Amino acid sequence: MDWFAAVDIYCERTAPGFWNEPLNAISNLSFILAAIWAGNESRKRPGQPLVIYMLIALCFLIGIGSFLFHTFANTWSELADVIPIWAFVAIYILASVRLIGGVSPGRILRVSLMVIAGIIITFMATSGNDTSQSNPETPISMLNGSGQYLPAVCAMLILSTLTWKRRHPLAPWFITATIMFMISLTFRTLDMHLCAAWPFGTHQMWHLLNGLMLGVLLQALIRNTARPDQPIQLAPGAMSD
């Protein structure tokens, strides 16, 4: 593997160079701001479980990794972008299952294996087509790389549906975050397809909306979780199965 091979898969990039994607690079501040927002809120609410601080740190690293990818634009920086994202997705899903549902550690392990398997299968299915199109002559796929986020879409839809059906206090947070994610994913998908009409592309909107979405997801857990041994309670009269 050539760790320094150039990767050019976004509309805004027209040539090699550190600042050839200024909007895509600077828009990663949204993740940094989301992490700062979450950090400030967690300090106001002592007793947060360790996993909350892990998620805040990963949110910050997402901003750093994505900034590196949209400036250096090569293989190693692509990994710096992808790894924190999927680490956040996996850990957030597991944290939600534990903190919201009070699921036992044994069942958490089984869920962990399912989450990891889902991510691996998705990457295998999309590798070579979605996540890396460094050859400018390669035809743009219909989803423009967005297929790799199918596990995240499924997880957010499931969390939103379950919390809504159970009248869970986190339902409005998850539903809001899911809507944001679907809109941001649309912007990501359209980026290369709209180059002729909009040379700057739409990928920076993916960053801005996703930063806000991660901020909402972090706030959802921070504001509704006191200790890991006290799962968030359902609303009175809600389903308990």
Rank of each mutant, 00 (worst) to 15 (best):
A226T: 14
Q133S: 13
L162Y: 13
G147M: 07
L23H: 11
Q133K: 14
P84Q: 04
Y92S: 00
T163N: 09
S184K: 06
Q48K: 11
L221G: 01
M54I: 09
W198G: 05
L55A: 00
V82N: 10
L234N: 15
R107P: 02
P172A: 08
G147N: 06
V111L: 15
T161D: 12
P136R: 04
L157P: 03
I158A: 15
L143H: 04
A117H: 05
D229P: 04
D81A: 06
I26W: 15
A5I: 00
P84E: 03
T71W: 05
G39D: 04
F4A: 13
L208W: 12
G118Q: 00
V103K: 10
L185F: 07
D8G: 08
D2F: 04
P231C: 12
L33D: 08
I83A: 12
T202G: 05
M192G: 14
Q48S: 05
N20C: 13
V216G: 00
L208Y: 05
I100V: 15
I100H: 03
P199R: 13
F123M: 09
A235Y: 05
I32D: 01
S27F: 10
L150A: 14
Q148I: 13
I175V: 15
G118D: 02
I52V: 14
G17C: 09
V97W: 11
L157Y: 03
A177E: 00
G201C: 07
V153M: 10
R98P: 00
M124P: 00
I52L: 05
S42W: 01
P151R: 06
W164H: 13
G237R: 10
M142F: 15
V97N: 08
A220V: 05
T14P: 00
G237M: 08
L208R: 06
F69C: 08
L55T: 00
G102Q: 09
I116W: 02
A25L: 08
F174G: 06
D241V: 08
V51R: 03
S160E: 07
A152G: 08
L208D: 04
A15C: 06
E21R: 11
L159P: 01
A90V: 04
F69Y: 13
M124H: 08
L159S: 04
G101A: 14
G106L: 12
G201S: 04
I36K: 11
T178P: 03
T189F: 01
S127R: 13
L109Q: 14
M213G: 03
F67D: 02
I120H: 07
I93C: 09
R107T: 12
L217A: 02
G128C: 01
I108L: 15
L208P: 04
M114F: 14
S127A: 15
S160G: 14
I179C: 13
S104E: 15
G211S: 08
M205P: 02
L143R: 04
E12I: 10
M1T: 12
F200I: 11
R227M: 10
T176I: 09
I32W: 15
W19D: 11
L61E: 01
T176G: 10
